[in-house]
């Protein structure tokens, strides 16, 4: 426990080592919010918009995605970026030289507070403000399901991190693959129900599961979908975690260590 606390301390210190970081990220977040909802405003001004979604529901959907992303980038996906970089330049050796369980060490040393401050707090506040505007009746159960799906998505992306780490032990240019994988996040900037194609919806739910960042938590809270989907999401999370774990285990056997 003390190791994770020490890592959290050092990472937060590192984050604040540049004075203007917090302010800059806040400015970036505000711009990001504006420019994410702005296209919806334009489309809604020129057309009837997206079927079954009002403009405010779309705002809530968008901010939910950002809120989930702040948690995923802090706790789940960063190992998948960070460790392949270290594998590529050989500094992963320095991690292997420490007497810490490798999975635990990969997790704690990849914790990334750049997406936690101020994102998590900013988006939480906006969600709380938007909630009464979209006219949902509050229910503890819906809130629980909302949080559960966010947790599931964190676990899935932790598993995906493991897959990236494993692949990086075989392929030197993983960063392009990761970038490509994340381009699908842009695809999920619209609610996936507008596609009306089961294959696409399945892909965006179970293979490139960015729909769990925004569509599923927002829809379950708004009552647009029912809880039938939850068991399959839980199984998906378990599957990704297992695949991620065994991938890392297998990948490390093939770790060659770059450089001198």
């Amino acid at each position: 426990m003390s190791l994770i606390m020490e890592y959290i301390k050092i990472k937060i210190k590192d984050y604040f080592s540049y004075r203007f970081t917090l302010f800059l990220f806040l400015v970036m977040d505000i711009f990001w919010i504006f420019f994410s909802v702005f296209p919806f405003l334009i489309i809604y001004s020129a057309t009837n918009g997206f079927p079954n979604w009002s403009i405010y529901e779309l705002f809530f959907f968008t901010i939910t995605g950002f809120f989930t992303a702040s948690l995923i980038y802090t706790f789940a996906i960063t190992p998948g970026f960070d460790i392949p970089e270290k594998v590529k330049d050989g500094t992963f050796d320095l991690i292997l030289l420490k007497p810490v369980n490798i999975f635990y060490h990969i997790f704690v040393q990849s914790l990334n507070f750049k997406n936690f401050f101020p994102d998590f707090f900013l988006y939480l506040i906006i969600l709380i403000i938007l909630y009464p505007i979209i006219g949902i009746t509050f229910s503890w159960i819906s809130l629980l399901y909302f949080l559960l799906i966010i947790l599931i998505s964190c676990l899935i992306f932790l598993g995906i991190s493991g897959i990236f780490i494993a692949v990086s032990c075989f392929i030197p240019h993983l960063d392009e693959v990761v970038e490509l994988f994340f381009s699908f996040r842009d695809m999920n900037s619209k609610p996936i129900d507008i596609y009306k194609n089961k294959i696409i919806i399945t892909l965006l739910t179970f293979i490139f599961p960015f729909a769990l960042w925004n569509y599923y938590p927002a829809s379950i809270l708004m009552g647009k979908i029912d809880t039938q989907v939850l068991p399959s999401l839980v199984i998906t999370a378990a599957a990704f975690l297992a695949i991620g774990f065994f991938s890392v285990k297998h990948g490390l056997k093939h770790y060659k260590s770059a450089g001198g």
């Binding site: 057309t47 009837n48 695809m187 596609y195 696409i200 892909l203």
Partner: peptide
């Protein structure tokens, strides 16, 4: 990645035009 982008936009704009 390009193929998947094609798929998404193909259905997205059909949905928007269809609803409009």
């Amino acid at each position: 990645g390009k193929i998947i982008f094609f798929i998404i936009n193909f259905y997205l704009w059909q949905a928007i035009f269809g609803y409009d």
